[in-house]
Amino acid sequence: MDDTSPACRVVRPGDGYTGKQGLDYGAGVSAQSAGARGLCLHTLVVPPGGRGTAHLHEHHESAVYVLEGDSEMWWGDGLAHHEVVRPGDFVYIPAGVPHLPVNTGSTPLRAVIARTDPNEQESVVLLPELDALLDQRLRAAGPDS
């Protein structure tokens, strides 16, 4: 096989990174690690009480499979929609849809994330105005909501 032929790659767990969204990822398959051209696949761990920041992926779809832990996700315009996500759930996030994950459980949230962006962080757009909006909404709802 010559050097220009596509090749299978095994990517061993290695260093992780903190994404623009404020979440910690275990680096997996990506353009950087395997030469992927149309996808990335990483792991995610969110500690109890941890949360990302509101963001969207401009031109790329995401899929999440939850291995362990309970979480909540707000999504859509103004983060108007809310979902509870549990182990065994699959989550599909269309390109361009704002979302914000929160680990509301007492154990770490562990998940596998796939995206159609091989560079993963390239299409991330942070939406701090939605973070502030959700914080206001949660404060107004009180601690038991």
Score class of each variant (00 low, 15 high):
residue 39 L to K: 01
residue 73 M to D: 10
residue 56 L to V: 06
residue 32 Q to D: 13
residue 65 Y to F: 15
residue 40 C to D: 02
residue 46 V to M: 11
residue 33 S to K: 04
residue 59 H to C: 06
residue 43 T to G: 12
residue 98 P to F: 07
residue 39 L to A: 13
residue 99 H to W: 05
residue 91 V to S: 06
residue 67 L to G: 02
residue 66 V to G: 02
residue 40 C to H: 02
residue 86 R to Y: 03
residue 98 P to Q: 13
residue 77 D to S: 12
residue 74 W to I: 08
residue 54 A to D: 03
residue 71 S to R: 09
residue 65 Y to V: 04
residue 69 G to H: 03
residue 64 V to A: 06
residue 64 V to W: 08
residue 38 G to R: 05
residue 48 P to D: 09
residue 33 S to Y: 01
residue 81 H to A: 14
residue 43 T to V: 04
residue 55 H to Y: 09
residue 38 G to C: 03
residue 93 I to T: 15
residue 52 G to M: 06
residue 43 T to E: 05
residue 90 F to S: 13
residue 40 C to E: 01
residue 79 L to F: 10
residue 49 G to T: 12
residue 95 A to R: 10
residue 85 V to G: 03
residue 27 A to N: 10
residue 39 L to Y: 13
residue 88 G to Q: 03
residue 82 H to R: 15
residue 38 G to I: 02
residue 49 G to M: 10
residue 48 P to A: 07
residue 59 H to A: 11
residue 38 G to A: 08
residue 61 E to K: 06
residue 57 H to P: 05
residue 57 H to A: 06
residue 78 G to M: 09
residue 38 G to W: 01
residue 66 V to M: 04
residue 99 H to M: 04
residue 103 N to Y: 07
residue 29 V to Q: 00
residue 79 L to V: 11
residue 45 V to T: 10
residue 105 G to P: 12
residue 46 V to G: 01
residue 75 W to C: 08
residue 46 V to Y: 01
residue 53 T to L: 12
residue 98 P to I: 08
residue 93 I to L: 14
residue 58 E to C: 07
residue 72 E to Y: 12
residue 59 H to G: 13
residue 89 D to K: 05
residue 74 W to M: 11
residue 74 W to L: 09
residue 80 A to M: 06
residue 82 H to F: 14
residue 37 R to S: 04
residue 57 H to N: 04
residue 47 P to E: 09
residue 49 G to E: 12
residue 83 E to I: 14
residue 49 G to D: 10
residue 57 H to E: 01
residue 103 N to G: 05
residue 92 Y to V: 12
residue 56 L to T: 04
residue 43 T to K: 03
residue 91 V to G: 08
residue 51 R to T: 08
residue 95 A to V: 02
residue 96 G to H: 06
residue 60 H to M: 06
residue 60 H to F: 06
residue 102 V to F: 14
residue 103 N to F: 05
residue 97 V to Q: 10
residue 105 G to R: 09
residue 81 H to M: 14
residue 61 E to D: 15
residue 71 S to I: 09
residue 36 A to K: 00
residue 56 L to M: 11
residue 57 H to Y: 02
residue 72 E to R: 15
residue 32 Q to A: 14
residue 68 E to W: 00
residue 92 Y to F: 15
residue 82 H to V: 11
residue 53 T to R: 15
residue 62 S to R: 13
residue 35 G to N: 00
residue 29 V to N: 00
residue 51 R to Y: 03
residue 52 G to A: 02
residue 66 V to L: 08
residue 81 H to N: 15
residue 84 V to S: 15
residue 100 L to H: 12
residue 59 H to K: 11
residue 105 G to T: 11
residue 33 S to E: 04
residue 44 L to F: 03
residue 106 S to G: 13
residue 92 Y to L: 13
residue 55 H to D: 06
residue 28 G to F: 01
residue 46 V to Q: 04
residue 42 H to Q: 09
residue 57 H to T: 01
residue 80 A to K: 09
residue 32 Q to C: 04
residue 28 G to N: 01
residue 102 V to G: 10
residue 30 S to Q: 01
residue 87 P to T: 01
residue 99 H to Q: 12
residue 91 V to P: 05
residue 27 A to L: 11
residue 66 V to Y: 02
residue 94 P to Q: 09
residue 27 A to S: 14
residue 41 L to M: 10
residue 42 H to N: 13
residue 30 S to T: 07
residue 87 P to A: 02
residue 88 G to R: 03
residue 62 S to E: 15
residue 101 P to S: 09
residue 32 Q to L: 09
residue 35 G to W: 00
residue 76 G to M: 05
residue 96 G to W: 05
residue 101 P to F: 12
